[in-house]
Amino acid sequence: MKIAFYGSSLLSSYWNGAATYYRGLLKALSRRGYDIVFYEPDAFDRQKHRDIEPPDWCNVVVYEATPDGLIEVASRAAQADIVVKASGVGYEDEALLRAVLDHARSDALTVFWDVDAPATLGELRNDPDHPLHDALKRIGLVLTYGGGDPVVWDYRAFGAAECVPIYNALDPETHHPVAENPRFGCDLAFLGNRLPDREARAESFFLEPARALAGQTFLLGGSGWGDKQLPANVFWLGHVGTRDHNAFNVTPKAVLNISRDSMASNGFSPATRVFEAAGAGACLITDAWAGIEMFLKPGEEILVARDGADVAEITRTLRPRRAKAIGAAALRRVLAEHTYTLRAELVDAIFKADFERRMVEAAE
């Protein structure tokens, strides 16, 4: 079957945290026989900061971020059996969703793939005129980056025909143990772009512990932090491309995950970096959120911090031997239960079940 996938970017992770999610899932789906075209706008200088070149498992079409460019690629939805519009494409998302739905064939499965479901649902609750309210009546399936039952219940309440979380996972061909790199040597590292709905939590869970542990070294990776006042023991690296993620994760004594506000409050929303760090064998410290135990076992495969004071205490008392043991346990767990190969099996089953159901209904 042919998939037309409209997303932010497959080729670049620059200001695009969903890149590795898209790559892992779509590569695994291609290996299950899907013919995929990924459409991404030339926006936010992402094409100047590519992490990968177009892969052999997916055709990538980069289009001009103009009304004409949008309509031209949206018209190609008519060629696909499955038409996917992701959230957060970054250029005229509402217009793109309408155009894609208008051009999709009547027999195609239309999918809204939400990579920030808690935030999207918050917008729907606060804005009764949000275009997605009407679009949900036309969309056959909602898939989400995570969110658990709370997200499923909310999407169904808003009229979604079906909603299924497809969680982040590990692509072991991309994220895996490597040799340590002295460039990333430190006691605690955090990788995340500076975003309005994360900055306060980054201050609490990363910068405050750094101030409390003046004798230890902290690394900050990600875009947008250049004008942020940082403690003297925090060193900012700027954008860290995916080719450096493994060394960034495995070299520090521990790495930190900080959820965005909406994902932390909703729970059941592990970020890509959780599985990427575990896949490299890193010792991961995460802020607390509901559902962690579905993915990694607290205290054995991941360390959980309720606040910045917990992060400081964990970092201060964590010994290298224990950190290595936690990282090794996390690696075993994600390889066994949380790979994109397994996630793609679920997506494949969902797609095929939908087509089979419609065939039965048409025959009745």
Rank of each mutant, 00 (worst) to 15 (best):
E53A: 13
Y6L: 04
V164C: 12
A189C: 06
K2V: 03
A254P: 01
K297L: 14
V83L: 02
N126G: 14
V37P: 01
Y63G: 04
G267F: 04
L97W: 08
R46L: 09
A169D: 02
A277L: 03
G88S: 09
A117H: 01
A349S: 13
W15Y: 12
T20A: 14
V360A: 15
V334K: 07
G88C: 09
S30A: 15
E180I: 07
G90D: 06
A74G: 06
F5H: 12
E301R: 07
L188Q: 01
M1G: 11
K228C: 07
S75Q: 15
A288P: 02
G122V: 10
A247E: 04
L26F: 03
T341Y: 11
D310C: 13
R319N: 12
F268E: 03
D354V: 05
A99S: 15
F268K: 06
V89Y: 04
G299H: 02
F184P: 00
R23K: 14
W289D: 09
D187K: 05
A305H: 05
A325E: 15
F355W: 12
P131D: 03
R321K: 12
G238E: 03
A309D: 12
A99W: 00
W57M: 06
V274W: 14
G159W: 06
V164F: 08
E94K: 13
V240Y: 03
N246H: 02
D68K: 10
V115D: 02
A43W: 14
E72I: 11
P131S: 07
E293L: 02
A202N: 05
K324L: 07
L11N: 09
L97E: 05
P41G: 11
D129P: 00
W225A: 09
P252E: 00
D51I: 09
S9Q: 04
F268I: 02
L303P: 01
R50M: 10
R273P: 03
D227E: 15
D348M: 08
A214H: 12
A160H: 08
A108Q: 04
P54Y: 05
G140S: 01
L96W: 00
A290V: 13
E345N: 15
D116K: 08
S8N: 11
S12E: 09
F235V: 08
F190R: 08
Y22H: 15
L10S: 06
P131C: 09
G69R: 10
V234W: 01
G281Q: 04
A288T: 13
A169E: 01
H176Q: 11
A169N: 00
L121N: 04
S223A: 15
K352S: 13
V334H: 02
A232V: 12
A329G: 02
F205R: 10
A157E: 14
G146F: 02
V83C: 08
A288E: 14
E301A: 07
D307K: 12
A212V: 07
S75A: 15
L11V: 08
S30Y: 13
A117I: 10
R358N: 10
L132F: 06
D287C: 07
L256K: 03
P196A: 13
S106A: 14
L237I: 08
L284D: 05
H49I: 09
